[in-house]
């Protein structure tokens, strides 16, 4: 049995790839899945920090690629979720430090051990992006409801679609009140423009910053609304039909319609 290999990507930086990778990974692990998260953002390592695992890094992705250690030596197990591990990126190396075949081989090896391998993709559409996408068989594109983020998302969607890999969309940092006042694109608008199936909607939420400050996955906060949101995303990823939360005035019906339209 080989894992599902999913790349989390966006084109634009700072829209929530790392946040999504970390929290989706933790949520899947909480649901009992075995998960390896790979930080492919060489030179800009962050996934470890978001998950509070930065102190435990011994080896990194590039060292594994160069054969200086085994994959299992470089994997950091998360103590809070036993079935979650991350492979950190190298911090002091160039993006080109790793060849596509090397990256793909590492993903393969990781995939043999778990249910999900989720790759946190670097921003941009160059080498790092190409490696990350080549290593995956499906993609989650993250965008905020802003024009530049959506345009960049469209670029990566085009590239991934050209490689014939299925793509689903997470709209991150949605501000429902702004959508209601007509000052922010709605999720329907975003889906319309991008013509990609919707996987999830994550509102702008202070808890993201707070949990990131502490290095705690959102899935640990059972009471918070974000925890429930990521849980829904995880379930959709696993094929469950989970209705979308209504954040804006277009309501559930519009959302469903949007999902069907894009589907």
């Amino acid at each position: 049995m080989s894992a599902r290999r999913i790349v989390v990507t966006s084109g634009k930086g700072g829209v929530g790839k790392t946040t999504t990778t970390a929290n989706l990974g933790a949520t899947l692990a909480k649901r009992g899945r075995r998960v390896i998260l790979i930080d492919a953002d060489i030179g800009l390592r962050n996934l470890d920090l978001v998950l509070g695992l930065e102190k435990r890094i011994v080896f990194d992705l590039v060292e594994v690629a160069e054969g200086r250690c085994h994959l299992r030596q470089a994997l950091i197990k998360d103590k809070r979720f036993e079935s979650l591990a991350i492979l950190p990126a190298a911090q002091t190396r160039e993006k080109e430090a790793i060849a596509p075949e090397q990256f793909a081989a590492i993903v393969e090896e990781a995939a043999a051990q778990v249910d999900y391998v989720i790759i946190d993709c670097p921003a941009g559409i160059e080498t790092g992006f190409r490696n990350a996408v080549a290593g995956a068989e499906e993609a989650i594109v993250v965008t905020t409801p802003e024009v530049s983020s959506i345009r960049d998302a469209d670029r990566v969607v085009g590239k991934i679609a050209a490689a014939n890999k299925p793509i689903r969309l997470i709209v991150n940092r949605l501000r429902p009140e702004m959508v209601s006042s007509g000052e922010m694109l709605s999720v329907d608008d975003v889906c319309d423009v991008l013509a990609v199936e919707l996987l999830g909607i994550v509102p702008e939420d202070e808890d993201v910053i707070d949990t990131t400050n502490r290095g705690e996955p959102i899935a640990l906060r059972d009471a918070g609304r974000l925890s429930a949101i990521y849980d829904k995303i995880a379930r959709r990823l696993e094929g469950e039909l989970v209705p979308f939360t209504t954040f804006d005035r277009q309501g559930l019906f519009g959302r469903l319609k949007g999902a069907l339209k894009a589907g």
């Binding site: 802003e146 024009v147 959506i150 345009r151 469209d154 670029r155 085009g158 959508v179 006042s181 007509g182 000052e183 922010m184 694109l185 709605s186 608008d189 319309d192 423009v193």
Partner: peptide, 22 residues
Amino acid sequence: RGSSATAKERLRLVLMTDHLEL
């Protein structure tokens, strides 16, 4: 409507142009 309608319209056009160029 507010600026979101403008945003959508501008995006639609810029994406069409992007797609053609690509």
